[in-house]
Amino acid sequence: MKKMIKVLISILAAFFMLQNTVSAQSDKVINNDEGVVIGFDDTFAPFGFKNDEGEYVGFDLELAAEVFNRMGVEYSFQPIDWSMKETELNTGNIDMIWNGYSITEEREKVVLFSDPYIENRQVIIVPVDSEINSKADLAGKFLATQEQSASLEAILAEEDFVSSLADEPITYATFVEVFSDLNNGRVDAIVVDETMASYYLEQSGDAENYRMLDENFGEEEYAVGFRQSDVEFVEMFNTILKDMMDDGTFAEIKSNWFSEIEAE
């Protein structure tokens, strides 16, 4: 019995030590004199992804480089499991989430958002020859999207729609896998970010094989997610971001990645 009590005490002590460590890390504040780690999904083109040369590139990564060069802050990019992004942030493994990160009410409870910098929609994509033309037509059909994404949150918010599907939305770790399911005919439709979808279909040369429905799951804004303790840093960050928008730098960077999409 005494041995069992000692074991229980040891377990409880270890548990509380772990809790204190996580709490201390979640209270971490960004120090301008130290480098920052930018967490991103390296499959989410054109915002952040690995190119054919194995380099990390993308609109958000180029934007981040300009922001932190102006701030005089060292930075590095860290690919993360998108489903664990808030955990990675609040345990101190990364200092921000920056990769087409949508502002939602649920996320605002756990992160501090920067000012928004781009607008987006959650769109429904189907094969061009599909008979699906509306959300109602998806009754009894299979739908896919990325796990722990704003797309999934938007779908689940419409309970009547979800209940009309053949099953719960099918989710994958990346949007590449989501598109693969649609390409292979395993699902009837997918819900994805419009900006990413347009770029993906344009680059793959398959744009003519798919179409977006007129109906969607709402408009949203992208922003950068920080720990809620990083208030002062985010204020400086927002100032630099606004300067870039005012002096035309933001528009110039954006045109490097979205000019073809916007012209469609």
Rank of each mutant, 00 (worst) to 15 (best):
N256H: 13
E147Q: 15
T91K: 09
E215N: 00
D42S: 14
F175C: 06
E74W: 05
I170W: 11
V176K: 12
I30Q: 01
I11L: 05
I170P: 05
T171D: 03
I5M: 12
E264G: 15
V7P: 10
N184R: 13
K109Q: 14
N93T: 11
D188T: 08
D137R: 13
V191R: 00
E177S: 07
D27M: 08
Y222K: 00
T249I: 14
N216V: 00
T174S: 11
E106C: 11
P169H: 02
L18G: 05
E221V: 02
I118N: 09
L61G: 05
E66M: 06
K85I: 10
L61H: 06
M4C: 06
F47P: 06
F77S: 13
N238R: 12
A251C: 09
Y222T: 00
Y200I: 01
V191S: 02
E55K: 09
K109V: 12
S163W: 07
L165E: 05
G100D: 02
S204T: 03
E55V: 00
E158A: 13
L8F: 08
E158F: 14
V29W: 00
N31E: 04
W257D: 12
D160S: 14
G72F: 10
V110A: 08
K254A: 10
T91M: 12
W82E: 07
E106F: 08
F175V: 13
V176L: 15
E53N: 07
M84E: 12
G225T: 04
M96G: 06
V111R: 06
A139V: 10
I103D: 04
G248R: 10
